[in-house]
């Protein structure tokens, strides 16, 4: 285990060095993403400005959801880009090379990339704004809870990225099914769950439990009562990651290379 962590750190450090060598790129990326995300947030504001609040839901609480889901996804992407880009690895045949190394491929793919700061930053801005506008007072308990929720959300997305990557073993290029839940989910997560149609509610509760890790905790923070399902939410996120890891293992086992 210690060896694996050390290897992961070596890989990550190497990746970090590459990025620092071209820091202009990283800064550009982060600031452009930040701007794009803030614009997206602004369109949400425009909708509330035009139509007014939806019963039981307003721009402040929607901002909290918007922020929360992006912070979680940003963190997952930061360590999960390898899985996200996995179809390139498969298509070029690089996966065979990875298999030859005496380190689990999952660790090789988990190399952190210091990106997505733009997304996380924009998420944080939106979330903090939402909290203050909705008069959510964060005390020690809710801060700890918040950290757990964010970790659970990141775990949830990470699990999904792993499943998405697993699909590549069969489809080589078709990885977009996962995008439906990743990006569709991020959009859906901005609204209270009960405002969505039945099938969507079902998908985002039972199949890809994004609502549980996003909407339920946000509601708990808003009301100040962290009980029941809200308390279980982070655990559910981590369980989903476990599921992702199992699926991934099955995929790796079933993998057969091509070529002579």
């Amino acid at each position: 285990m210690k060896f694996y962590i050390r290897m992961w750190w070596l890989f990550t450090r190497a990746a970090l060095r590459t990025q620092l060598a071209d820091s202009a790129n990283a800064v550009l990326w982060a600031s452009a993403t930040l701007l794009g995300m803030l614009l997206e947030w602004a369109t949400l504001w425009a909708l509330f400005a035009r139509f007014g609040s939806i019963p039981g839901w307003d721009f402040a609480s929607s901002s909290m959801l918007f922020g929360l889901v992006r912070i979680a996804f940003g963190i997952a992407e930061m360590i999960g880009r390898g899985f996200d880009r996995f179809h390139h690895v498969i298509r070029k045949g690089d996966f065979d090379r990875m298999l030859l190394r005496p380190i689990p491929v999952a660790i090789q793919l988990s190399v952190a990339e210091f990106s997505r700061f733009g997304m996380i930053g924009a998420g944080a801005v939106a979330f903090i704004y939402g909290c203050s506008a909705a008069h959510v007072s964060l005390n020690l308990v809710s801060m700890v809870y918040l950290a757990a929720v964010i970790s659970g959300g990141a775990a949830l997305f990470y699990g999904l990225l792993m499943m998405q990557a697993t699909l590549c073993f069969w489809t080589v290029d078709g990885i977009e099914v996962a995008n439906a839940v990743v990006y569709g989910g991020q959009t859906a997560a901005q609204l209270p769950l009960d405002k969505l149609s039945r099938p969507l509610t079902f998908v985002f509760t039972y199949i890809f439990p994004l609502a549980i890790i996003n909407w339920i905790p946000a509601k708990a923070l808003l009301t100040g009562e962290i009980t029941g399902l809200a308390l279980a939410a982070p655990v559910i996120g981590w369980l989903f990651l476990g599921l992702g890891a199992i699926v991934w293992r099955m995929g790796v086992r079933a993998y057969t290379s091509t070529g002579s």
């Binding site: 939806i54 489809t171 290029d173 439906a180 569709g184 989910g185 859906a188 969505l196 099938p199």
Partner: peptide
């Protein structure tokens, strides 16, 4: 396969967006 998968993605995404706008309207 990518295209067919894309169709599923697009339908889910469309449903989500329509639901959001319906809530506002």
């Amino acid at each position: 396969t990518a295209a067919y998968a894309g169709i599923v993605t697009q339908v889910v995404f469309g449903l989500v967006l329509v639901a959001i706008f319906a809530a506002f309207y």
